[in-house]
Simulated scan of single mutants.
Amino acid sequence: MFGDSHEHQNPFAGIEWDEEKVYPTLGAPPNNWSREQTFHNILRKLSTSEVEGSDWDPESIMEYAFPPGLIRRPEKYHREGIPDPLVISEHDKEYVRRWYPPLEDSPAELHPFQSVELTLAAGEQSDFAIVPSETRMYEIGTFGNSDVVMVLFEEVGGELRYFTAVDDSGEDSNGRLKVRLFEGRRYVLRTRLYSTWGPGKAALMLW
C-alpha cells in the first residue's frame, strides 16, 4: 500500500516465482536491475510482522505488473501474468482513509516554483496545502536520492478526498504527478519518505 512495500512481497500472497526467469527479465531494459535489486524489489518476502493485514490484493495500485511465465503458482498468474492495475482498488482506498486521517494542524502552503526540503526520516510524513491561483495543468515532483510516496487529496466540505498518488519506491527515479488543479479549490499533498538510496536530502516542488 501507499508508503509501504509492494503487494507481490506480501508473505500471504502465496506467490512461487520462477526465479531463473525473473532475474534475466528484470535485468533487461527498461529496469536493468542487478540480481540484488531484483531480489530486494521483487523476490524478497516481507516478515509477517512488517505487514498490516493479511490479504494479497493483486488489483492494488501497489502491485507491479508481470508478464506470463514468471510466476509458477498461483496457476492463474503463471498463464496470464499480473496486469498493471492502473486504478486504485477498493482496498487501497480503505487503507488511505485509515493511514491518512484528517489533518489536525494547518499544513504549510506549497507555492509554485519554490523548492521545499523534506527533512524526513524513513517512515515520516510532511503535509502541504496547495491553493491554485489559476486553473491549469500542474506538476508536482520530488528530487534527490530517495523514495518518496506522494498522495494528493482535494478538500471537499471540510473532508479530504483522495485525488491521485505516485510511489517511486524500488526505482532509481523521482516521482511526478501531473494533475489539473482548479482555482479556488484547496488540495493537500501528503509526502512520506519510504527510504533513501544515496547521499543528500529530498526536496519537493510544484510548478
Score class of each variant (00 low, 15 high):
Thr135Arg: 10
Phe163Ile: 04
Val156Leu: 13
Ile42Glu: 11
Trp197Phe: 12
Arg35Gln: 13
Glu154Trp: 01
Leu189Trp: 00
Ala28Thr: 00
Arg35Ala: 11
Gly198Asn: 10
Gln114Asp: 11
Ala202Trp: 05
Pro74His: 00
Gly158Thr: 11
Thr135Glu: 11
Ile130His: 02
Lys21Gln: 14
Phe66His: 14
Leu110Asp: 01
Thr191His: 01
Leu103Ile: 12
Arg72Met: 10
His78Lys: 14
Glu63Asp: 04
Asp57Gly: 11
Arg192Tyr: 00
Thr164Ser: 10
Pro101Tyr: 01
Trp33Cys: 10
Arg185Pro: 00
Thr119Met: 07
Tyr187Gly: 06
Asp105Gln: 10
Arg98Met: 10
Leu118Asp: 04
His91Thr: 08
Asn31Val: 00
Ser47Asp: 14
Pro101Ser: 05
Pro132Leu: 03
Asp127His: 08
Val156Phe: 08
Leu152Gly: 00
Val166His: 05
Tyr95Leu: 06
Glu80Lys: 13
Tyr77Val: 03
Arg180Pro: 00
Pro102Met: 01
Gly157Cys: 05
Thr25Pro: 07
Ala202Ser: 14
Glu139Pro: 01
Asp84Glu: 01
Glu80Phe: 04
Ile130Met: 01
Val151Arg: 12
Trp197Ser: 04
Arg79Met: 09
Ala203Lys: 03
Asp55Gln: 15
Phe182Arg: 15
Tyr187Arg: 05
Ile15Leu: 14
Ser89Arg: 07
Arg136Gln: 13
Glu154Thr: 03
Met62Gly: 12
Ala122Asp: 15
Ile15Met: 07
Asp127Phe: 05
Thr48Lys: 15
Lys76Glu: 07
Phe163Ala: 08
Asp57Leu: 11
Lys93Tyr: 05
Met150Val: 04
Thr164Arg: 02
His111Trp: 11
Pro24Asn: 09
Pro102Cys: 05
Phe163Thr: 08
